[in-house]
Design a protein around this nucleic acid. Sequence first.
DNA 1: CTGTATCCTTAGGGATACTG
DNA 2: CAGTATCCCTAAGGATACAG
Lengths: 136, 136
Amino acid sequence: MKYKAYGCPIRYGLGVFGDKWSLLIIRDLMFKGRRYYGEFLTAGENISTSVLAARLENLEARGIISKANDADHGKRIIYSLTEKGLGLIHVMLAMMDWSEKYDEHTEVPKSFIDALRDNRSDLIDEIYSSLKRSRP
Amino acid sequence: MKYKAYGCPIRYGLGVFGDKWSLLIIRDLMFKGRRYYGEFLTAGENISTSVLAARLENLEARGIISKANDADHGKRIIYSLTEKGLGLIHVMLAMMDWSEKYDEHTEVPKSFIDALRDNRSDLIDEIYSSLKRSRP
DNA sequence: CTGTATCCTTAGGGATACTG
DNA sequence: CAGTATCCCTAAGGATACAG
């Protein structure tokens, strides 16, 4: 995961989330409403606790996610996407759109596809805003 | 690079190009006009020949790129993006847009940014078409 | 020029036990 | 519950030689 990131936007992206797990964690935060350590652990993809901790630390260090204390549940820690992390929605939606087109086993909510295929920006903004509102 | 790809579009994408080199090769094909084995090798990122061969083989197997004999130069082999590979342009542009916004060292051609920020679809279609025309 | 074939190295990831 | 701390392991990647 050490790329010389300077100058090339693709390399930069790879340097931030170009590993085996980061995009899956971001997906969970962005589309599946997962916010707790344990929720990532048991998300069904079988990430090990040591790796999860490392990925979360890296994503936080790079400004993609942030930690906060969950006011409702004592000392429970709640993760959320930062503005920068939320900005990856376009990358995520583009991947989803592409996969939906080429992988027969993939199904993506129709509203996402519509947002991408037709009148991109306004529908994406809508999804984006709703994600933003759902942040703690 | 072995992910259980079924069902999730993000996992599927990661399974296809979620390694250290694939997106860089795709970038070279898509935006830098590189088409020959040697051009990828000396692209300045220092990929080793064994790894390059493996990546190219994988990308071809997954339908992202295709090989053809270069009519002009005897047995020289020319690589190009398939329709499926070209379809990744939205992912690439989204990454470039995002990096341009958050990485101070990244600079992306203004036409790309414009295509993404304002009137997405038509300008993207234009870029897309020109890439398509430039295929062998 | 476009690759194979080898061999080697290592970082990333997996398993598990443990802690406040 | 939310992580550390270890230890281990292997697949991916790097170096180099060579072949058609």
